[in-house]
Design a protein around this nucleic acid. Structure first.
Length: 593
RNA sequence: CGGGGAGUGGCGCAGUUUGGUAGCGCGCUUGCUUUGGGAGCAAGAUGCCGCAGGUUCGAAUCCUGUCUCCCCGACCA
């Protein structure tokens, strides 16, 4: 391909709406253009990158025995109503674009395909003899993101590879899950990405085990914790660790102490010289449940710890055996609206009386009481006295009525000891989620009545797994991980072209002829090569070459008359001046070992 | 949805406070010179100043409404 014919439009200035390096570079390099919020055109260079990535994904998926398919993007609402997700995905802050056709039928634009594929599987797979099956597609998905961001990182229309597996039994699901884990590791490695598998929360999709693949990068939206012995890694949403020990409380008589204006942990510590780990902090949350009830939750946590809201939601959901639609901390206004008065915010203890809720308009009139291990493990502690401006010191759990349910509810932090090895400690990194694999279990197959006949001749819902890779996001993540001040440094396997021949001055006939010769040599060897034949000054072409980030460059310039060219590696700028034939064969040797 | 910011030529911006009929840099076109790291000179083209109302002799500028985009939070491949 000749650059003069490539519709290459590079930008010198950084577009104002691009924040992170990868987004800026893709715009500047002429890879993508924004069409609307979270909606992008993939320009020819970008499309080549995406095709290289999908080729790798296809090879590895096919290798694993998965079957490629293509499912519709328009989904009848009935399917989503059956699974119970229509309401949640369309109403309020729902993520699904939806519409009505001319007959008034409701349709959704697929954000994910569990409904469609599970329904299909139920139709097609009738016997255990047909199982297991793993179906995948590479498809444009639509999500009405609350806030699209960072170019392709969080778009409203994006390309995703998703796969769904169906099994007769749980163990078989586990082995496909493991196979997918292996395939994913290979895919990311082949794409030239450093991707860390981490334990993950399965979130809205639900299910048992789940693992995310994170491309480590400063701009990542997720916080991940990795043990320094390399044996454990988890998303902070899920991560568990051993908290630092509490500072022991001096042996004091139990008493109630005036603490005016000291409604925060910091204020208490400042005023009395206490350590935050000696205090119990109590948080009030309201959980909105599937059956539309509203459950106040009272959480006790050691003062130096942070609440992990994902763990909280999972805990509540498990205890009440319902899905939690929403869970947020309760504000003073919320109390007022409920007619619940006299809540001593800032001075609450774990034993706050349920009586206070008796007047509540719509809330359940009792607290769901939870405590993190850090709180329940304290022998003696300081806590609110449930009256304004008063705290209790040297309090113990026996002094308080009502035992809370004890769980892990805290955020793991960098520096914490690891559960698997007390010598190991957690390190914090940021990550871009490029893949996620789940063991879904039978949630969808049950909801959608999707079943097969087992060996005993009985109908049974499928065991299911699902496995996603954000293809367009992966492409941008690769740029985030591989760039420098001058531009992109694509990993060779996913670069739009493998090599670029730059003719410094096309008006010099010797240079141009040699450039063509070198270019043809590469093309004939099956190399994806680009020839910069533009009537531009050399400097401009070098800048553009750096920007678009083709891994290898052969410069045909002032030494062309002696048959010499420069072979340059983009990633580290290593340069060799060589006779053109040597340079060509060396490059071919590198690319096609 | 809550909080912050912005809409002026393809891109980046000034002009808005104090109304007087639109400007700069880059890019684009043509010519000459230059030719290894985003060249120089000269001549050009490109704007319903987001949209709709209003105030005014006169609006990019003031008022009202509206749309869009970006950043911070909840969502997630």
């Amino acid at each position: 391909m000749r650059v003069s014919r490539l519709m290459l439009v590079t930008l010198r200035d950084v577009p104002a709406d691009a924040e992170i390096a990868s987004h800026q570079l893709l715009l500047r390099g002429g890879y993508i253009r924004r069409i609307g919020a979270g909606i992008y055109a993939y320009l020819p260079l970008m499309w080549r990158v995406l095709r290289k990535i999908t080729a790798i994904v296809r090879e590895e998926m096919d290798q694993s025995g998965a079957l490629e398919t293509l499912l519709p993007q328009l989904h009848p609402s009935e399917l989503w109503k059956q699974s119970g997700r229509w309401q949640g995905y369309t109403a309020g802050e729902g993520i699904m674009f939806h519409l009505e056709d001319r007959q008034g039928r409701e349709l959704g634009l697929g954000p994910t395909h569990e409904e469609v594929v599970t329904n299909l599987a139920g139709d097609l797979l009738r016997s255990y003899k047909q199982l297991p099956v793993n179906l995948y597609q590479i498809q444009t998905k639509f999500r009405d993101e609350i806030r699209p961001r960072f170019g392709l990182m969080r778009g409203r229309e994006f390309i995703m590879k998703d796969a769904y597996s169906f099994h007769a039994e749980e163990n078989d699901l586990k082995s496909t899950y493991t196979a997918m884990d292996q395939a994913y590791r290979k895919i990311f490695e082949r794409c030239g990405l450093e991707a860390v598998p981490v334990d993950a929360d399965s979130g809205a999709i639900g299910g048992a085990a789940s693992q995310e693949f994170m491309v480590t990068a400063e701009a990542g939206e997720d916080l991940i914790l990795i043990s320094d012995d390399g044996m454990y890694a988890a998303n902070q949403e899920k991560a568990a660790s051993i908290p630092p020990a509490a500072v022991p409380l001096a042996d004091l008589d139990a008493e109630t102490l005036p603490t005016p204006q000291q409604g925060s942990i910091d204020a208490l510590c400042d005023a009395h010289g206490w350590h935050a780990s000696q205090i119990i902090k109590v948080l009030l949350y309201l959980a909105k449940l599937d059956d539309e009830s509203e459950q106040p939750v009272l959480i006790s946590l050691r003062g130096d710890q942070e609440l992990n809201e994902v763990k909280l939601i999972n805990a509540v959901s498990q205890i009440v055996d319902q899905s939690v639609l929403d869970c947020q901390s309760i504000s003073q206004d919320d109390f007022s609206r409920q007619g619940v008065l006299d809540i001593p915010l800032g001075f609450i203890g774990p034993d706050l009386d349920d009586q206070l809720l008796s007047e509540a308009r719509s809330w359940n009139p009792h607290f769901l009481r939870l405590a993190d291990h850090t709180a329940s493990n304290l022998q003696r502690f300081i806590c609110g006295a449930n009256k304004p401006d008063l705290h209790r010191i040297s309090c113990g759990w026996n002094d308080l009525q009502g035992t809370p349910t004890v769980l892990d509810l805290r955020n793991a932090k960098a520096g914490d000891q690891c559960l698997h090895n007390l010598e190991a400690h957690l390190v914090e990194k940021r990550g871009i989620e490029v893949g996620h694999i789940f063991q879904l279990g039978r949630k969808y197959s049950k909801a959608l009545n999707s079943s097969f006949t087992n060996e005993a001749g009985r109908d049974e819902p499928f065991w299911m797994g699902c496995y996603g890779i954000g293809i367009s996001r992966l492409a941008q993540a690769a740029v985030e991980q591989h760039h420098d001040a001058a531009g992109i440094c694509w990993p060779t396997t996913i670069a739009p072209f493998e090599a670029m021949v730059v003719v410094a001055n096309i008006q010099d006939e010797q240079q141009m002829a040699l450039g063509e010769q070198v270019y043809n040599g590469l093309i004939n060897a099956g190399i994806d090569a680009l020839l910069d034949d533009r009537k531009e000054r050399a400097g401009v072409k070098f800048k553009d070459a750096d920007l678009i980030g083709i891994p290898y460059r052969i410069v045909v310039g002032r030494d062309a008359s002696e048959g010499l060219v420069e072979l340059v590696r983009r990633s580290d700028r290593e340069m060799q001046k060589l006779p053109h034939a040597t340079a060509t064969s060396a490059l071919i040797g590198t690319l096609r070992p």
